[in-house]
Simulated assay, not measured.
Amino acid sequence: MKNEMKNELDRVVIISGEGEVGIIEPHTGRPTKRAVRARLTRERCCGDRWAKAIAYVDGTEGFDVETGEPADWTSEYDIVTKKH
């Protein structure tokens, strides 16, 4: 995926929570991998919570910001990112 190589990210959602329940919210900080990773560290609260970030690529394609692995971009993510 071509966006994986760029440092600047177009749209990113943060999915975080405790146990199996989580919430989806847009990343509203700087659109860089470094900024997203820093936010994930804060969201995880020293291991009390889990968090992941998905960046938009195209259509229903995205990728995990930390691992670079492909991930699905769902319509829920579109709704969340369009609010901001």
Rank of each mutant, 00 (worst) to 15 (best):
I14G: 10
D64R: 03
R37T: 05
T67M: 11
M1H: 09
V57F: 13
H27L: 08
A71L: 04
N3H: 04
S75T: 14
R30Q: 11
T81E: 01
K33I: 05
D78K: 12
E43V: 03
T32A: 09
T81I: 03
E20K: 15
H27V: 10
M5H: 05
E76K: 12
T60K: 15
V21W: 09
E76N: 12
R34F: 06
R39P: 00
R39F: 01
I54T: 09
S16Q: 05
H84C: 04
R34H: 07
W50P: 10
D58Q: 13
E61K: 15
E25M: 10
C46Q: 09
W73F: 14
D72H: 15
G19D: 07
G68R: 15
T32S: 15
E8C: 01
F63A: 01
Y77I: 10
E4P: 03
V12E: 07
G68C: 09
N7Q: 03
T60C: 12
A53H: 11
A35P: 07
R30G: 06
R49E: 06
G29N: 13
G22M: 13
M1R: 10
P26I: 02
V21M: 12
E18R: 07
E8F: 05
K83P: 01
R34W: 04
H84R: 08
C45F: 00
N3P: 04
K83W: 04
R39N: 00
T32L: 06
T41W: 09
K6C: 05
E18H: 12
F63Y: 13
T41D: 13
A38D: 13
H27E: 08
I54A: 12
T74F: 02
P26M: 00
E69F: 14
D58M: 05
A35F: 07
D48W: 00
V21Y: 10
I79W: 06
T67F: 15
T28P: 06
R34Q: 12
K83F: 04
V13P: 06
W73D: 14
E25L: 08
T81P: 00
R42W: 03
R30W: 03
P70D: 15
E66I: 00
V65A: 06
T32K: 10
T74K: 01
N3M: 07
E20I: 05
E61C: 15
Y77W: 06
R44F: 04
T28Y: 13
A55Q: 10
D64K: 02
F63Q: 00
L40S: 12
T41P: 01
G59C: 11
